[in-house]
Design a protein around this nucleic acid. Sequence first.
DNA 1: GCCCAGGAAGGGG
DNA 2: CCCCTTCATGGG
Length: 303
Amino acid sequence: METGAIPLDSVGPFDLQSTVESGQTYLWDRADGNMYETMSAHGGEHWYETVVPPLAGVSDERAVVRVRQVDDRLEWESTTDAVPILTHLLRLDDDLDAILEATPDLPLLERAYDEYRGMRLVRDPPFGCLISFICSAQMRVSRIHGMQLAMAERFGDSVDFDGRTYHAFPTPEQLAARTEAELRDLSLGYRAPYVQRTAEMVADGEADPAAVRGMAYEDAREYLTRFVGVGDKVADCVLLFSLEFLEAVPLDTWIQTAIADYYPECDAGGYAETSRAIRDRFGGEYAGYAQTYVFYYLRAGGE
DNA sequence: GCCCAGGAAGGGG
DNA sequence: CCCCTTCATGGG
């Protein structure tokens, strides 16, 4: 086991608990088993853990990573050097102060940024992110998370680390080999065939979420909708939380409420036009950061 | 029982 | 192109 600590003074504002528990990623778990339940002060000091697949340009092999925040540093334990992995997954390489500085001065955004100071977007592994958000349709965040844990435990590889057994998220091949009925047994409901068929598309090489790298934003969104169970909204989530399109603004129920209550002139009818309008309102380049803060803030009861 | 949850697919107009 | 219905499931 390797261990270490990342000092955050050179990283800028960072808050681990809100980053991992705000409903952007469903691929982490909290060691105490109380994910989404007890929230605590800055950082949280809870241990979070995940099994990370090989990441292009970051890590060649699968890794188990545990991390917690204690004041202004991240303590980690891992099968390997976790610094590049955590930097990648938790976007420690973002200049958050500069991003906030580039954001328009809107009262709702100010309140959300102030409430969750230090929350970052994530860079989830693409396949896990794609499946997570296919499962997200008409579902609460705690259940989406539970589905991903269940798929990992049932269909993913077992990985031993530090005297415990962890479960990697299934590969496209592992999910493609399951039947719709086996997925329904995990309470995926009508999402079961979507997950199975999308996994098959990836496993067979028919399409690849990572293929959107370098595409223009709206072309990338259009590309992702070829996957079964992926419409404009889920495509935007995958673009934002995995594939580096920080301008993506997923139009979920919460952000649509925000548009109706705060920015009604941005409601342009269709998804593409409304998305374009709210993206401009939120400053364009980093509009997805603003969206994610607003989503978490409103869902937690803010107004 | 009723309603809702980070929506999407399939059909018809 | 837009509008409508249907699709599981668990928790309040």
